[in-house]
């Protein structure tokens, strides 16, 4: 469970005009795929960093799995895995194997147990044939799978993806959603996906829409479909708009 209780946040406390989160409260349950959506600069990535304990609230409280993110940094970093917008910034090893091992070292796993754990996770992500490959030989989609493997091997309770689909080719996008469904079913994890791609919306179990630091909508894709939203706040998938036009015609 993730809990935001009247959370306020600013990047620079002296600048009055810049971006701010003001007393925002909400909660997210595990075992669901949560979508965070909203325009550029609306605060999506900031919320992700707050949940992962990389930023701390100025006022109010954030709890992840019962832990206060401001008080228990080290614990939070284990519980929340975050996969950033650009995988290149996240890969630290020179080979696939090494990159996965890096996370395990941080967990102080005995060296003898590592190969088995690495093999397991690589098989789960379907990259077992790539273990010896230098990371700069991987395609974009493969790099992303590696990032996920390197985070998953640490057995986090939450996984946050910051715009995972925007850099993927359309074939890999479809695979990504299949992979996510499997993860949700086979592991005890909560998943948050930040996205700008409106075609992604129907893959979410629950959607939160942000605007200018505020949470302005919470609901299912079905509820978003029929919600009365201010102009320009969100672009609904063309598919939904098309269905609406067809329904109106048949009615």
């Amino acid at each position: 469970m993730i809990l935001f209780d009247r959370v306020s946040f600013r990047y620079k406390s002296n600048e009055e005009t810049s971006f701010a989160i003001r007393e925002v409260s909400f909660s997210c349950r595990q075992n669901l795929i949560h979508g965070f959506i909203g325009g550029n600069g609306s605060g999506k990535s900031t919320y992700a960093r707050l949940i992962a304990g990389l930023l701390h609230p100025e006022a109010g409280k954030i709890e992840v799995c019962g832990l206060d993110t401001s008080a228990e940094d080290a614990q939070i970093h284990r519980k929340v895995g975050i996969i950033f917008q650009n995988p290149d910034n996240q890969i630290v090893g020179t080979t696939v194997e090494e990159d996965i091992a890096f996370g395990l070292e941080n967990l102080a796993i005995p060296t003898n147990d590592m190969p088995e754990k690495i093999q397991q996770i690589a098989e789960e992500m379907g990259i077992e044939n790539l273990l010896k490959k230098p990371v700069h030989h991987l395609s974009g989609g493969q790099k992303q799978l590696l990032c996920i493997a390197s985070v998953l091997v640490m057995q986090p309770e939450w996984l946050i993806f910051d715009e995972p689909t925007s850099h993927l080719d359309p074939w890999s996008r479809r695979n990504f959603w299949k992979m996510l469904e499997i993860l949700k079913q086979q592991r005890q994890v909560g998943i948050i996906v930040i996205s700008q791609v409106s075609d992604d919306f129907e893959n979410f179990d629950s959607i939160r829409l942000f605007a200018d630091g505020d949470l302005v909508f919470t609901g299912s894709p079905e509820e978003l479909k029929v919600a009365n939203m201010a102009d320009g706040l969100i672009h609904l998938p063309e598919k939904w708009q098309f269905e609406k036009l067809r329904e109106a015609e048949n009615a």
Binding site: N40, S166, H235
Partner: peptide, 8 residues
């Protein structure tokens, strides 16, 4: 287009 919102 990657990362741009719809208006962008």
């Amino acid at each position: 287009l990657a990362g741009l919102d719809y208006a962008g």
